[in-house]
Write a protein that binds this DNA or RNA. Structure first.
Length: 269
DNA sequence: ATGGTTGACTTTCAA
């Protein structure tokens, strides 16, 4: 099962690029973030025409996640299933950032969680507090999934630069919500639970990169001034099945690219 | 220090 995760920065703006990518690369499953559209606006028919099932958890203008799959999907859950999501202020429910489904592979099922973690800037402030609180909620859900002892993939835009080697210029990110010590610690806590960063399983000793995001500004791509913030975190049972993990860097060089590129994990499932 | 770019959607926010 080849699983790609990609922050497409707007499905409407990216539709020609997305459709061409699905045809050429043909992932079994695509976890998409920042679709920036309500469920009813998603270009479902164009994607289904290419042989993909479509599950979305969208909202108007911002955020929004989707799972596209050539494999059967079961047990779809929209939003983090927890108490705060149903809280009185409704704030957390209003942001569409989490979508789960089980993909039925030829050799076995994989629980897929497509996530778009809050950016958190400016930090400190209410947006950063929301990021850390959302991390707490993610960990609570991840603990329940871990207890199932099934293969689980937490894939998406984590908005965390885990280590200095995950940025071309780590010093430039020192005060940023993506690289603050609390953000990195929250990410490590998910790893400490027993989830494995797929890229680091395959490339444990790389001194720099691979990067998954280059800002549109300041010629970041031309200077390869990137960061790695899109990750597949694998439960132990998913890690046992890992065949390969890589970053599709060349997607940043095409016409009208997203500022993120797809990250891939191939499981023997 | 500033500014630079893109998307959604209108005058401005989010990233």
């Amino acid at each position: 099962m080849r699983i790609a995760s990609w922050n497409i920065n707007g499905v409407r703006a990216r539709l020609p690029v997305l459709l061409a990518w699905l045809e050429e690369r043909g992932p079994d499953v695509a976890l998409l973030q920042e679709i920036k559209i309500p469920d009813e606006g998603f270009p479902r028919e164009e994607v289904e025409r290419l042989g993909y099932r479509v599950e979305t958890h969208g909202q108007k203008s911002f955020n929004g996640v989707a799972i596209l799959s050539r494999l059967a999907l079961e047990d779809v859950v929209r939003g983090l299933p927890d108490a705060e999501g149903a809280g009185p202020d409704g704030e957390d429910d209003a942001q569409a950032r989490w979508l789960e489904a089980t993909a039925m592979g030829g050799k076995g099922a994989v629980r897929l969680c497509c996530l778009y973690l809050p950016n958190g800037n400016p930090a400190p402030g209410p947006k950063y507090a929301y990021k850390l609180r959302w991390f707490d909620r993610l960990r609570a859900r991840a603990a329940d999934l871990l207890a199932t002892e099934e293969p689980v993939v937490l894939g998406g835009d984590w908005n965390v630069i885990p280590e200095p080697r995950d940025a071309r210029r780590p010093e430039a990110w020192a005060g940023d919500a993506l690289f603050l010590p609390e953000s990195r610690a929250a990410f490590r806590r998910v790893e400490a639970m027993g989830f494995y960063d797929a890229i680091r399983l395959r490339r444990p000793f790389d001194a720099a990169g691979p990067f998954t995001f280059w800002d549109y500004q300041r010629g970041a791509w031309e200077r390869d001034d990137g960061i790695r913030i899109d990750h597949h975190l694998l439960s132990p049972q998913a890690a046992d099945l890992l065949r390969d993990a890589w970053v599709e860097r060349e997607a940043r060089a095409g016409e009208k690219p997203s500022d993120h590129v797809p990250v891939w994990a191939e499981l023997d499932a």
